[in-house]
């Protein structure tokens, strides 16, 4: 099964785990399985409209999946998909 690596601030919503085995043949399916296993993660990864939040980046190896096939990027059993947030803010 592919593995998803969880960034520090989201670990409390995944029972404190750093890496989680997920089922799925694509990035979308893997995220679906992750949020089924840990429903509390859903609101931090997806907007109310069901879109991935702007700060959520998904890396397969060194590659941002936006530069592959997005959430339809296929995953192999030994793939490691990393969730890496962009950190942004500002005063208005």
């Amino acid at each position: 099964m592919p593995t998803l690596r969880i960034p520090t601030p989201l670990r409390p919503y995944a029972d404190g785990q750093t890496e989680i085995s997920v089922q799925g043949k694509t990035v979308a399916e893997a995220l679906g399985d992750l949020t089924t296993q840990f429903p509390e993660l859903k609101k931090h990864l997806f907007s109310e409209a069901g879109e991935l939040r702007a700060f959520v980046n998904l890396f397969l190896g060194e590659e941002d999946v936006r530069h592959l096939q997005g959430i339809e990027t296929p995953l192999k059993d030994d793939d490691m998909l990393r969730i890496i947030p962009s950190i942004a803010g500002g005063n208005h």
């Binding site: 601030p9 942004a88 803010g89 500002g90 005063n91 208005h92």
Partner: peptide, 17 residues
């Protein structure tokens, strides 16, 4: 600008941090 989080800060914020 005041040191309170803005709407933009909230939209982009990670929990727990």
């Amino acid at each position: 600008h005041p040191n309170r989080p803005s709407e933009f800060d909230m939209e982009w914020a990670m929990p727990w941090f």
